[in-house]
């Protein structure tokens, strides 16, 4: 296996990589923490705010059901948003970095 030798610490200091890593870390951990907080509102709310959860919104459908349903929509939303940002920013930066290294 003819694996190319890379100077890893030099790449790690490459401004393109630094930009990639900052953008990515902020995005990933930011949305991860958001999704966790949003999720735990569901069991916490169901247990400690039953009054809110039983308010009827559409016909007999109450806030609790819609909130649980919104968890699905939010998860899907985050995943699609991430896919877009990753393709637009992270993948592009990675490609540019790799091209630069191979020159």
């Amino acid at each position: 296996m003819a694996e190319k030798q890379y100077d890893w610490s030099a790449i790690a200091k490459n401004p393109k990589f630094v930009e990639l890593h900052h953008k990515k870390a902020a995005f990933l951990f930011g949305w991860w923490i958001f999704s966790l907080i949003f999720y735990f509102l569901l069991p916490i709310g169901a247990a400690y705010a039953p009054g809110l959860f039983k308010i009827k919104i559409i016909g007999v459908i109450n806030f609790g059901y819609l909130f649980a349903l919104s968890q699905f929509l939010v998860s899907w939303g985050i995943s699609l948003y991430y896919a877009r940002v990753a393709e637009r920013d992270f993948d592009r930066l990675t490609r540019e970095l790799v091209d630069e290294l191979h020159l």
């Binding site: 949305w31 991860w32 999704s35 999720y39 069991p43 169901a46 609790g64 059901y65 649980a68 998860s75």
Partner: peptide, 21 residues
């Protein structure tokens, strides 16, 4: 009733961690 549905939510949200991290 709805408790079963609320229980299922965690199984999907778990994939946000898988995806992002």
């Amino acid at each position: 009733g709805i408790d079963g549905f609320m229980y299922s939510v965690g199984w999907l949200v778990a994939y946000i961690t898988v995806l992002l991290i």
